[in-house]
Amino acid sequence: MLDTIGNVLSFSLYEGLVFGFVAIGIYLTFRVLGFPDLTVDGSFTLGAAITGVLIVIGVNPFLATLAAFGVGLCAGLATSLLNTKLRIPALLAGILMMVALYSINLRVMGGANVSLLREVTIFDQVFEWLGLGADVWYAELILAGALVVIVFLILNWFLRTEIGLALRATGDNEQMVRGLGADTDMTTILGVSISNGLVALAGAVVAQGQGFADVGMGIGMIVMGLASVIIGEALFRPRGVARLLLAVIGGTFVYRLMITIALRLGMAPGDLKLITALLVIIALAIPYIQKKVRRQWLPPAAKW
């Protein structure tokens, strides 16, 4: 019994950490920039595909993981260029890239999936360095945790720099930012690129953890990431850059915990996306209903 609880917790913690990247990426676009970026479903798989293929042809797994971050950046760059330079609405630009990436991912992998079962991944490398067996329960946590700490520290620093501040301000009041002499096209491009880089990084780590990359593995990432962000915000009510980032990671953990428990209780894996969608709807509806009950004024829903 205790063993099961320990299992569920450590597994959720691991997933909370790796999918935390996706949530942080989604948080950067949807919340910080106010840019509803749907590229994510495609760039997650892109990161997995690139890393998978590179590892299979013998590239060092760390380099392959870094490469995933790089191509993710490029995917985000493409989406944000469509938006800022061709003035295609953000939502549509993201959908276009997501669809295009589906074909690209198939091309990259030369099929629907790539197996990494016999390959040396970053996990194998780290286990070897630490002299740990893969059966030690915290083995995977160490790597995932280290990656999250690195990303957290970098972002926490970056978002407080002069450029990072301009990026945050862009999501709040774009006209003001231009009026104060900062190029909002540049900040948008930067933010959307970094976001997709992180999402692709998550894809790369997840693929190595599960031993394969699959063309369908990114489906639903946006909703999952949004669910994590919303749960994190609701539970922790954070203020300030550092707390927000931590809340997003915490939200991912809680979300993953709920999913893992649902699965253990015998729910069919195919139903999870429906559950997630319902979760997001409920989380979004609660503040609305609260305001409605208190008879507060409510603006009409945003169309984005």
């Binding site: 970056f158 407080r160 002069e162 501040l165 709040d172 009041n173 003001m176 002499g181």
Partner: peptide, 28 residues
């Protein structure tokens, strides 16, 4: 239009202070 609501007074002023100057990777 002239101020950003979801940011602190300090952040707004830090944005304004850098008008016409290059924005870099120093702390804002």
């Amino acid at each position: 239009i002239g101020t950003a609501a979801k940011m602190a007074v300090e952040d707004n002023l830090a944005m304004a202070l850098l008008r016409g100057k290059p924005r870099g990777l120093r702390a804002a």
